[in-house]
Structures are given as structure tokens and as C-alpha cells.
Design a protein around this nucleic acid. Structure first.
Lengths: 345, 345
DNA sequence: ATGAAAGCGCTAACAG
DNA sequence: CTGTTAGCGCTTTCAT
């Protein structure tokens, strides 16, 4: 292996102008296709660009340009390696690229300090707008950023302050529907396993669960409710404990991805996977390949991302209409595990 | 809902200077903690910053600063929503954030035109360096970008040109190991199902398969080799056809994620999942939850990402050492499907 | 159709 | 310790 070449200084419009024998302004006009330049001049400039390997400097241009736009969007999620987050990012990126806008991506890990730091980094780069999955807790930093005028769309969790667009899914309604379906299959002992209650979606799904119970005329039972579970193993332990309790449920509503997997693991280990019904919130790969295939509430994550991107891009273009709170419907994908009936009493 | 506030003009150092009654240079010093400023002056400046809600403009500063660094890294992958790509991105982001460097992310969809376009966008923003999963085909655009002096690290696929760092995994060696293990369990009819041969990794894995056969003293057989499969369904059809052929294999080596899933589906449908051995390249969620659990070759994607980030960040710092070709070992995760023996003849 | 001068927000180099 | 001047690469404005 040989030495890695050192960074060279890039040619500027000045260099092009000198080589083409025109003024720097003419170069600018040619490069931005603004017309009003003689054919031969255009040709000479293009040749010089080729010869020197010139590439426009967007940061310098946006500094002076009237719109001051950086053609860059900030996207802040919990964790870029999460399937939900990465699918969302991809959808935003795809939409943004249509307008030749690039995406600065960051993970805030549901941590307010990290979120503040990342917000500052994005602001320092003068992104044209932001798509943010808000960390749990007070949204002061987001609101402050917003008050600077930065177009911002919140995804997955709504803003607690005004004048700001958001895109969320039907957490509560779909959870309610899942529980109602379990009830309609004859279940009367339906448990809910959920994630951190500090996260808005967890709360909503829990509320939906309770509403579903009520609508089916079923009693709630504290023994059948377990929140703040973190990770597959914690979920598995909670499910095991519940099944060993004095009032074991016959159906489970797992309000989050990893919790669903934890529940599957326990049911599989005990050989009860065809006996205990299971509906999970959020789809996951291979949910249809296991036995029984897992019934889930599926969010339309790409649509959430596209909607968020459309909103923020429109705001950047100056759309002054009232703030929107878009709700993307989730649907119940029936695959088997949620259509198991309880054993006869 | 009320009107969304319009973008306001941000205060500049000039405004701070005016309010604090100092020169703009003093403001610069205070904001960049360069010292050499009286305590009361510092205080006045800080107050003005607070009062006006001033935030530094990194693009403007990097335009003039000696190092010209934008504190931004470009990351170009196939598809940001792929698990491999998003885990990689996350690892790079994490490393970059330690140096307060942000990440501009893009998907090139293994398409040379899109890749060129994205490369140009990154270059226009003067990223300090790039981490690139090269699209299949000629790497002229990458090489040209490289020749401009941009620090660049290729991941997952090596460069076909010189003086450029790369980070890859043991595609060939691990494939060979997988095949050798199948042979050691008594299999003599081992098939290989692979993805697009235009992709370097597919070729390497196929070569590893052939080497593994040879080392085990087994004959290769064209009927047992099927490449250029795209997607779960195509893979499933190919596996089905193979099993229906005149020389059905007793073991399968599937060289890519989705192909593994396609194979699983067929084996499951035919009730042969405990009869035909299966080893897949690349781990996937729930591989340990299905029956039988799937034996896979697992890449250490986070380590690949961290290594790539470390390399490019070091180059940005000026590291002049010879180009590195880092190889991150993949390991065989034995879960059951790859440890099935062939039926007695 | 082309160019000169000014300036975007900031930092470098040098004075005082 | 603090300020002045120049200039990063580009676009704006206005002149020719």
C-alpha cells in the first residue's frame, strides 16, 4: 500500500474565471445556468471547469444567497439502528432527495441532554428544517429551536407546544382494536405488557388497552398490567411471572416489538404458543415465519416518514398554513397468534 | 391550530458586539473560548448571546477557518433502511459524535448514477470525509472524488483503485468454513444459493463455497449452484426447484439474508426443516426463535462501522500512513439448522 | 451580454 | 487584553 494523498485545495470560481478569461460573475452565471451569457463564453467556462475539476461550494453560496437555504434537513431519532427509525429516515431521505436536499442524521437515545446537543449541532449547520422524534420529558429545547423559526415536524410523538406540525400513528385506537379482537375471540383474561411509560406511545397504547377492555365489558386487573419493561429478557420474565400468577391470562397484548419477542420466547419454551393468544404492537421481520405466525398492529412507517418530509419541505418553501397534526392509521395484520381461542373453562 | 411562525433572521456576532459594546473579534474570542478576554467583557458578551438567542454559524466559520473543516462526514450506503446499512450508519455516527462530527447520510441503491449524484451533493457541502458502500461496477466516480483529496473509506466492498482505506469482512473464508462444517457433518450434496454476482460480496461468498467443497474433497455440481437471486420469493422458487431436481442437495448454503429466509420458507412448507441442513450468511432478528434455530455466519457490523469511522477521522486529522485494508472476522453462530446430519443413504 | 464593488458571518494576521 | 483590516467563495446590486 502506498501513501494516502493529502487534501489539496479545491479550485474556486476565481480560478475558473482566470483560466477562462472572464469575470467571476460570469462564471457564476454559467455554473448556475442563469443564462445571459454568450455561447462561446459558456463553452470556455465549461472547459475550465473540466480542466480544473471545479466543484461548486454550496456552503459558500448559501451564505450569500438570498434564500440562505443549505439544502439540508436534520433528522433526529432515538437510535438510527432501530428498524422503525431507519425506515423513517430512509423515507425522509427519499423525499428530500427529490428536491436535492440532503439529510443530517442523529440519534438522541431518548435522552434530553443528547437531544439538546444534537439540536445545537444541527442549528449550527443552519439546516433548513428538522424532523424530530422527541425525547421523553419536557420539550423546552425543541420549543426554543422552533421559536428561532426553524421548520420542524415531530414524528411518533406529538409536541406539547403549539404551532408545530406532527405525524403520529393510531396508537390508542389500534391498541383498542387489538384488545377488542381478543375479546371477540372469547378471551376474558387479557394482559398488557408495555414499555417505558415516560414514552408517550407506551402510555397511549396502555390507554387503548384499557379502553378496549372497557368496551368489551371486561374488568381490568392490576395483575394483568405490567409496564416499564425494557428489553427482551425483562419482558420474558414478566410474562413468565404473569403466567405463573394466581390469575394467568389467556391472551397477551404486547405493546412493543421487543416485548412481543420476549413473550414469544416464553410461550415457545412452555409449549403454550398455540394456547395463549398474542397480539403485538409493531410488525417485525419474520413475524410471519414463526409458528404460530404473529398477529400484529402494523404502522405504516414509510408513510409517516413521507408525510413528515412533505410537511417540513412545504414549510421550508414558505407554506404558512396552520400547523397540522397528521395521524397515519395502523392496521391489524391477522396471522394466527391473535386468532387463538381460549381453552374451554 | 394557529399559524406557523415564519423564519426570522438569526442574530450575528455583529449584533452581539453592538449590544455588548465590544468589537466583533472579541465576541468571536469569547464564543470560541479562546481566552484573552477580561472577565467583565466575557460576561457582557454572554449576556448579549442569551438576550438575542445567538447561535454560532458553523458554515460561515468553517469558510474562513484555517482547517476549513465542516465537522461533517458523508455516509453513502445501498439503502438506509437495510439492517446492515443502518447498523453501520449508527456505528459511524456514534464514533463521529465523539468528535462533534455530524453525519450526512444517503442511499445510492447500488446504482452508479445515484451514487454519482449523491457524491456530488456531499462534495458540494464540503464534507470532511466519506464512508462509502460502493455501488457495483466501475468506481471511476469514487476514484475521482478521492483524487480531489477527500478522505474516503470503503466499507463492505473493497476499492478497485489505490491509496484508499477499506473495511470488509471475511466473506470468502467464512463461507468456506460454513461449507466445511456442513461437509464435516456428513453432507456430500451441498448447494449454494447466492445474490447478484455483480456485487463483490456475492462473488466472494460463492468462491468461498467452491473452496470449501474442494477442501472437503467434494465435487461441484452446476445443479447445486444458483446465483443472481433477488428477493425472498425468487430464492424460495430456486430452492424448491433444486429440491425437486434429479440430484437434490441435503444441505444448503444461502449467501444472503433474504435468500436464507426464502429457503426457510420452502423447508418449512415441505416439512423438511429438520431434514435439510441450512447455513445462511448474515444474521437476522429471530434467527434463534424459529425451529430449528438458524445457523448463520455473523458479521460484526458495529465493529466494521467503528473501524471505518476511526480510519476516516484519523485521515481527516492528517494521518499520512499507508492505506489500510481492514478485515473484520465474521463468526459461525451454531444454532441447529447447520448441525443437522444427512439422512442415511 | 459582461463586470466591479460590496457583503453574507465569520476567523486570520497583525496592530496597538 | 482588545481592535482593525482583510478575506474565505460565493451572490447581490448596480453599472456599463
Amino acid at each position: 500500500m502506498t501513501q494516502v494523498p493529502a487534501r489539496r485545495t479545491e479550485p474556486t470560481m476565481r480560478d475558473i474565471a482566470a483560466l477562462a478569461g472572464v469575470s467571476i460573475k460570469t462564471v457564476s452565471r454559467v455554473i448556475n445556468d442563469q443564462g445571459g451569457a454568450g455561447a462561446d463564453v459558456v463553452h470556455r467556462v465549461r472547459e475550465a471547469v473540466q480542466a480544473l475539476g471545479y466543484r461548486p461550494n454550496l456552503t459558500a453560496s448559501s451564505l450569500r444567497r438570498a434564500d440562505r437555504l443549505s439544502a439540508t434537513l436534520g433528522v433526529l431519532v432515538d437510535d438510527l439502528s432501530n428498524p422503525f427509525d431507519s425506515v423513517l429516515l430512509r423515507a425522509v431521505e427519499e423525499r428530500a432527495q427529490r428536491d436535492r436536499v440532503l439529510v443530517l442524521a442523529g440519534s438522541a437515545e431518548d435522552n434530553l441532554d443528547l437531544q439538546r446537543e444534537r439540536l445545537g449541532s444541527l442549528a449550527a449547520r443552519r439546516v433548513d428544517g428538522m424532523v424530530v422524534m422527541a425525547a421523553s420529558g419536557p420539550q423546552d429545547d425543541l420549543q426554543q429551536e422552533r421559536s428561532h423559526g426553524t421548520p420542524m415536524v415531530l414524528v411518533d410523538r406529538p409536541p406539547t407546544f403549539g404551532h408545530t406540525d406532527s405525524v403520529i400513528t393510531t396508537n390508542r385506537e389500534s391498541s383498542r382494536e387489538a384488545v377488542r379482537q381478543l375479546a371477540s375471540y372469547g378471551h376474558r383474561h387479557i394482559a398488557c405488557l408495555g414499555g417505558r411509560q415516560s414514552i408517550w406511545t407506551s402510555q397511549e397504547r396502555r390507554t387503548g388497552y384499557l379502553e378496549g377492555l372497557a368496551e368489551a365489558g371486561l374488568q381490568r386487573h392490576d395483575e394483568w398490567m405490567c409496564m416499564d419493561l425494557k428489553g427482551v429478557d425483562a419482558a420474558a420474565r414478566a410474562v413468565a411471572a404473569m403466567l405463573d400468577g394466581t390469575h394467568p391470562p389467556t391472551a397477551l397484548f404486547t405493546a412493543q416489538n421487543l416485548i412481543t419477542v420476549g413473550a414469544m420466547r416464553v410461550l415457545q419454551a412452555r409449549g403454550w404458543k398455540h394456547r395463549i393468544a398474542l397480539i403485538g404492537f409493531d410488525d417485525f421481520p419474520l413475524a410471519d415465519m414463526v409458528d404460530p405466525a404473529i398477529t400484529v398492529v402494523r404502522q405504516d412507517v414509510p408513510l409517516i416518514g413521507r408525510t413528515a418530509a412533505d410537511l417540513v419541505l412545504a414549510r421550508i418553501q414558505g407554506d404558512p398554513s396552520p400547523a397540522v397534526r397528521a395521524v397515519i392509521p395502523a392496521d391489524l395484520v391477522r396471522r394466527g397468534s391473535g386468532e387463538l381461542r381460549p381453552p374451554p373453562a
